[in-house]
């Protein structure tokens, strides 16, 4: 029911995006000393969000045509992140990863706050507090 409301769907997608990005960052940090490893990242949320709202056909049933249901956040495009290469072929920079992880944290908190306050508004509108 709640995923029919656009703002909640957006908040959900944003939190899922933050989670997926955090997993990528964790992978980069874990592999920070593996020879030949290339750092990865996930395309920004603005891209995956605009992709699945503007081009998607409106569906009234789950089985309708209209490609994958990307709103649940399972489909994010993997990109290769920029970085200088160490002598052993590794392109992870721990500093960049830390900055990214702070960004992700902020994004996740923002998404959860939006979700929470939307939930409050919804509760108020049905007369419960």
């Amino acid at each position: 029911m709640l995923d029919k409301i656009e703002i909640m769907r957006m908040a959900q997608g944003m939190a899922a995006h933050a989670g997926a990005r955090q997993a990528t960052i964790a992978q980069n940090v874990a592999q920070a000393d593996t020879p030949g490893y290339r750092a990865r990242d996930i395309a920004p949320f603005s891209e995956s969000y605009s992709n699945n709202t503007s081009t998607e056909l409106r569906r009234t049933r789950a089985g309708h045509l209209g490609a994958s249901d990307a709103a649940d956040g399972s489909e994010f495009r993997m990109i290769r992140s920029q970085g200088t290469e160490a002598p052993n072929g590794n392109t992870v920079s721990l500093e960049t990863e830390m900055v990214k992880s702070a960004e992700v944290r902020q994004q996740h908190e923002m998404a959860l706050s939006i979700y929470k306050s939307s939930l409050d508004i919804l509760r108020a509108s049905i007369g419960r507090r």
């Binding site: 939190a15 955090q22 964790a26 000393d33 721990l94 830390m98 996740h108 939930l119």
Partner: peptide, 27 residues
Amino acid sequence: QRSYEANLKIFDQARQMSSALFELLRR
């Protein structure tokens, strides 16, 4: 040691993010 600390920091952050998520259920 430096790499270990970086991993630990990411671990802690993920833990905080998931507990913030659980906080939604506690209302």
